[in-house]
Every structure is written in structure tokens, then in C-alpha cells.
Simulated scan of single mutants.
Amino acid sequence: MLPSAADLLVGILRPALAGATVGTLLPEPMPLPFVLARPVGGAAVDMRFLARAVVDVQTWAESDRAAEDLAAASRTALVMAWRAQTVVPAVGSIGFLTERTAPVLLPEERTPDGVYRYQATYELAVRPAP
């Protein structure tokens, strides 16, 4: 009944982020630039037509600026899809969007030199396609 939040994220971000690979799992090897977009929590508000999803959007690129720009473009794509009530065919739309954590640089030991990673967290109300 309820749409997949992962399918909704991919359906919104892939067309908006030309030149970047968008997925819900980390590929090995990882192509750059790359966007990981996946639900990390949430629950149904009404099993028939509304769910809240907490989603994680991470971006990787070969420069800090490119990774930050990709994170900003991902944020913009989500906001624009929500405001325009864009329906991803056979999936659904975003009924509400709020940012829990703004995009931030996350350096870590496992990230290779010359690769930069940003992460943001959003809460979406997800509705099925009409």
C-alpha cells in the first residue's frame, strides 16, 4: 500500500543529478560522483496512505566543493519535488519535508585521499501515487 521511500528518493534524485550515480547501496568500487539515498527509519502514520520516513542522503566526489555542491543539489531536488508535488510514477510523492541535519562534511579514516563525503538527514511524509 505505502510506497518505498527508497524508490521515491531515487526517482526524484536520478533525473535531477545528471552526471552523478544515485543508489541505495554502496557499490564496490564506488563511481564518483556518487549519491547514496536511503531510508534509515520511520513509521506509517496511516497504513493506507501516509508514512513518515527518515532518510539519509550522502554524497561523494573528488573535491570538497563538488561533494558540497552535490549535497546542495540533492537538497534542492527534494525541496522542489515537495513544493511542486512531483509524483514519481507508480511510486508516490512527498507530502511533507523537513531537514533534520543540514549537509555537513564527514571526513573519516576509510574514505580514500582525494574523496570527500557530505551527509544530510531529512524527514519525509510519503504518499502513494494516485
Rank of each mutant, 00 (worst) to 15 (best):
P3L: 12
S4E: 09
S4N: 07
S4I: 11
S4M: 11
A5I: 00
A6Q: 10
A6E: 13
D7G: 14
L8H: 05
L9T: 10
I12G: 05
L13P: 11
P15L: 11
A16K: 01
L17V: 09
A18E: 08
T21W: 08
V22R: 02
T24F: 03
L25F: 05
E28W: 01
M30N: 06
M30P: 00
P31C: 06
L32M: 08
F34W: 03
L36C: 06
V40S: 01
G41M: 12
G41L: 09
G42V: 03
G42M: 04
A43S: 12
V45H: 02
D46A: 14
A51D: 09
A51I: 01
A51S: 15
A51V: 01
R52K: 05
A53R: 00
Q58S: 07
A61T: 05
E62Y: 03
S63W: 04
R65G: 09
R65A: 14
A66F: 09
E68A: 15
D69W: 11
D69I: 12
L70P: 14
A71N: 13
A72L: 14
A72D: 15
A73K: 13
R75T: 13
T76A: 15
A81Y: 10
R83T: 13
T86G: 05
V87H: 15
V87D: 13
V88L: 12
P89C: 00
V91I: 07
V91M: 02
G92E: 01
G92C: 08
I94R: 09
G95P: 04
G95A: 10
F96L: 10
T98V: 05
T98A: 11
T101D: 14
A102I: 05
L105G: 05
L105C: 07
E108C: 01
E109R: 02
T111D: 02
T111A: 11
D113V: 12
D113M: 06
D113L: 09
D113S: 11
Q119G: 10
Q119C: 01
A120Q: 15
E123V: 10
E123H: 05
A125E: 10
V126F: 07
R127S: 00
P128V: 00
A129G: 06
